[in-house]
Computed example of a mutant assay.
Amino acid sequence: MQFGIFSIGEVAPDPLGGRTPTEHERIKAMTALAVRAEEAGLDVFAVGEHHAPPYVCSAPPLLLAHVAARTRRLILSTATTLVTTNDPVRVAEEFALLQHLADGRVDLMTGRGDTPDVYPWFGQDLRQGHELARENYALLHRLWREEQVDWRGRSRARLDGFTSTPRPLGGVPPFVWHAAVRSPETAERAAYYGDGFFADNLHGPVEHHARLVDLYRTRYAEHGHGTAEQAVVGIGGQVFVRARSQDAVREFRPYFDRSRAYGGRYSLEECAARTPLVVGSPDEAVEKILGFREAYGDCQRQLFAVDHGGLPLKTALEQIDLLGERIVPVLRRELAVGRAPAAPPGPRHPATRPRAGALG
């Protein structure tokens, strides 16, 4: 199983110190997080796409290309790429080029996003969101697999014998995850294509996303890609750990209370009980994360947010170190026990090789 971190690039004030980082500082911080993730022995770094304040990463391929030059092993992914408002031709070109720059260490996570305003900004209609996602991904899928594409659709100009360049590295496209917060249509699309499904869960009840995963697994098998156990599942969440659980709760509470995602919905204790949020000691974190297997089955990837809600860079780097030293090694060992023989490893491009001892 692969473990990593993701960032949505939010610029938020630190409720303890009161200071808000600049956009420049926040962008540089995301690169620092990625480099530290590789140093800590994690497998994946992912970054989300947003086009309005308070977020700064409007062009994930550019950031990931910079990270690719600073790392050697880390798998680079989006979390997510807006499949509804991005031109599939540009996505095909940019991520194939990124594949070559990173020697295959590239994934793509597609999603519809959670900002309705973005649709008119890019000349699209929010009411056509599901249709845009369906049509745009169908074209992207073909562009990476066919040398010459003829295309007639509703969302973009026609294509006649079009060849996307560069071609995917070694003829193998980036692995695609379809991310959803609540959409069964997304789970169905992932299953139809035999792609991965990512339960994009930062603050939702675990049981809700477990139902989406079950739907995806069932439909993956029905579409003939393999058994339900062979489906490729990723899960998200946030972690905040300290040596003592009471210290973790005390330190994280101000960030939780003022978070755009969490604040005002329910208490920290209620959220930690119902959602993937992990706040406590390393041992408590391990225990809760191991419990996700009961809800989701054997998964291929787990990503953690470590810099959400105004957490300063220093604190986020400490979280990565704790993941690498105290949490992920235990999870690798424990999750290998009883893993279904049919469960696939985490996706990797053939041009890459797992590091020694990894249980990807």
Rank of each mutant, 00 (worst) to 15 (best):
T31Q: 09
L33Q: 10
R36M: 12
E38Q: 01
E39P: 01
G41E: 05
L42V: 04
L42M: 04
H50C: 09
V56A: 05
S58H: 14
L64A: 06
R72C: 05
T85Y: 04
D87A: 09
F95G: 03
L97P: 00
L98A: 04
H100M: 09
R105Q: 03
G113S: 09
Q124F: 12
R127F: 10
R127M: 11
G129E: 13
L132E: 10
L139C: 13
L139F: 08
R142S: 14
L143S: 07
V149A: 11
G153Y: 05
G153M: 05
R154A: 14
S155F: 13
S155K: 05
T163R: 14
R167L: 08
W177D: 02
A180Y: 04
A180I: 03
E185K: 15
R189S: 14
N201S: 13
H203V: 14
H209I: 02
L215P: 02
Y220N: 04
H223Q: 12
G224T: 01
G226N: 06
V232G: 00
Q238W: 11
V239A: 03
E251G: 00
R260W: 08
Y266I: 00
Y266P: 00
S267M: 00
C271Q: 11
I289M: 15
R293F: 08
F304M: 07
D307G: 10
L311M: 10
E318L: 11
E318H: 08
V328E: 04
P329M: 08
V330M: 03
L331S: 04
R333E: 15
A343D: 03
A356M: 13
